[in-house]
């Protein structure tokens, strides 16, 4: 068996690219919908549209191609911030994301990199 060096591969490639996003999104979204800490933020949303947003978020957090700006993050979450979205909810989402990747067999080191990308959006998401 030929073992390819992954040192030059991007995070997105190492995770498995768009196929990995596709594999993760339903599991991640299910976790979010049943988690008491954050579920209520998703009560009144259109599920198909929300799944599209989750995919875009995962693609970004996986280091994939995206065109989010900090301003989009702020305006997109302003309604939730008004509903009380705070650091504890942000932490819960990052935890659920890590749990999803763990179940998929992703190495801890890569999960750490994903969490770091998610972390970089905290101030914008929470409107700080």
């Amino acid at each position: 068996m030929h073992i390819m060096s992954t040192s030059n591969a991007t995070l997105f490639e190492q995770l498995g690219g768009q196929a990995a996003v596709e594999a993760a999104v339903d599991n991640f979204y299910r976790k979010v919908l049943v988690d008491e800490r954050v579920a209520h933020f998703f009560d009144d949303v259109d599920m198909d549209r929300q799944r599209g947003k989750q995919k875009a978020f995962l693609t970004m957090a996986f280091g994939g191609p995206h065109n989010y700006s900090g301003k989009d993050m702020r305006t997109g979450h302003a309604r939730l911030v008004a509903m009380g979205l705070n650091d504890s909810h942000f932490d819960a989402i990052v935890e659920l994301l890590g749990g999803t990747l763990k179940e998929m067999g992703v190495a801890d080191e890569l999960i750490g990199q994903v969490a770091a990308i998610a972390e970089s959006t905290r101030a914008d998401v929470l409107g700080k």
Partner: peptide
Amino acid sequence: LFLAGIAM
């Protein structure tokens, strides 16, 4: 149905 495991 989604929470029971059907893919979206």
